[in-house]
């Protein structure tokens, strides 16, 4: 019996709680997760509007660019009619949205190929690169963060901090060229360019992408490591960490068992942010290593104003960002014992 419960159950003139409030009190975690998913869907819808509107107000016209010298008014009008550009904006948006919801991103104006099929191909490549980098970077960053806390303010901690800071301070293209110089030019131990083809086996693909993966690991590791360290050090100041010490619990066990579970939420968030970066923000690395990922695909489409491709890529990027952040938030909710085990 707690004071809170008694106060609420006391006879008073409180307004009767609504159905939603009852649901929230009964299932604090379920309702929070449901709210977060709902919010994610709204966000995705809003970003689709933004992407469509943003591209609409861009200067330049595909028909003019495409036709070049032969851009007579009649030819432009014909081409516009062919792509449906003469329709009202709202109609075009809802047509596009309707098709997207059915998995159809339309056809590329430049090549005429299906955007969906191309995105599927490129996204697979991007996910392979991001996945390989993440599998190495996340455990390494969290582990180094734990190690830095364990040897806080000692040599190991300083070394980890210094090296990770150096790695993140160098621009990614510089790291990439540095790796190419050392591992391709001076000691030819790996392949360049890191272009993958559908015909390759997974093992061959992994061997090919060693250098871009190494570059990405170096770029993202510092951020995650430092956040892990900061989050755990923040928790180390709590009274329950002193309790652990006064119970004679060893330093490593105290950090892993008592500090880490309470530092999960910020760590999960920074990991999600970096995963999103690995998928949607690595265009520079893709260009340097001639890697056929999403980033390069989108940049190519922008230069020729191939709007269906740009829109499709934009929406996929937005969806990945929203999905990862939503997952991070839901995991943070799950990691909170107060929500997992309500009174």
């Amino acid at each position: 019996m707690t004071e809170n419960q008694r106060v609420t159950s006391a006879p008073g003139k409180a307004p009767a709680p609504g159905l939603l409030a009852v649901f929230r009190a009964r299932f604090p975690m379920g309702s929070r997760i449901a709210e977060r998913i709902l919010l994610g869907i709204c966000l995705l819808f809003a970003s689709s509007v933004l992407i469509f509107a943003g591209i609409e107000i861009l200067p330049g016209d595909f028909a003019e660019t495409y036709l070049g010298q032969s851009a007579t008014p009649q030819a432009i009008a014909n081409l516009s009619a062919k792509f449906g550009l003469d329709q009202p904006l709202v109609t075009r948006y809802f047509d596009w949205l309707f098709n997207v919801l059915h998995g159809d991103f339309g056809h590329s104006w430049a090549s005429g190929q299906s955007v969906s099929a191309q995105i599927a191909d490129r996204l697979g490549n991007s996910l392979l690169l991001a996945g390989a980098a993440a599998i190495i970077a996340v455990p390494l960053a969290v582990g180094l963060g734990l190690l830095a806390v364990l040897y806080r303010d000692r040599l190991v901690d300083r070394l980890i901090n210094l090296l990770s800071l150096a790695a993140v301070s160098l621009p990614e293209f510089f790291v990439a060229y540095l790796l190419i110089m050392v591992f391709v030019v001076q000691n030819p131990v790996t392949a360049f360019p890191a272009t993958v083809y559908d015909s390759m086996s997974l093992l061959e693909k992994l061997q090919t992408i060693i250098l871009p993966v190494a570059t990405l690991v170096l770029v993202v590791i510092a951020h995650m490591m430092r956040m892990t360290r900061a989050a755990i050090i923040n928790v180390m100041a709590s009274a329950y960490m002193e309790t652990a010490e006064l119970k004679g619990i060893g330093a490593l066990r105290a950090i892993v068992k008592h500090a880490a579970p309470n530092a999960l939420a910020p760590i999960i968030n920074v990991v999600a942010l970096n995963l999103a970066y690995l998928i949607v923000g690595v265009v520079v690395v893709e260009v340097v290593f001639v890697y056929p990922g999403m980033g390069q695909y989108m940049v190519d489409a922008v230069t020729v104003r191939d709007l269906p491709v740009v829109q499709g890529c934009g929406l996929v990027f937005a969806a990945i960002y929203i999905l990862l952040n939503m997952t991070a938030d839901i995991l943070s909710i799950l990691a909170n014992p107060r929500l997992r085990h309500p009174r």
């Binding site: 709590s238 009274a239 329950y240 002193e242 309790t243 652990a244 006064l246 119970k247 068992k257 008592h258 579970p261 309470n262 014992p337 107060r338």
Partner: peptide, 16 residues
């Protein structure tokens, strides 16, 4: 030798 603190609420780990 064991210890009982002033604020047990802060001295217990909320995660366990």
């Amino acid at each position: 030798v064991c210890y009982v603190s002033q604020s047990a609420a802060a001295s217990f780990n909320p995660a366990h």
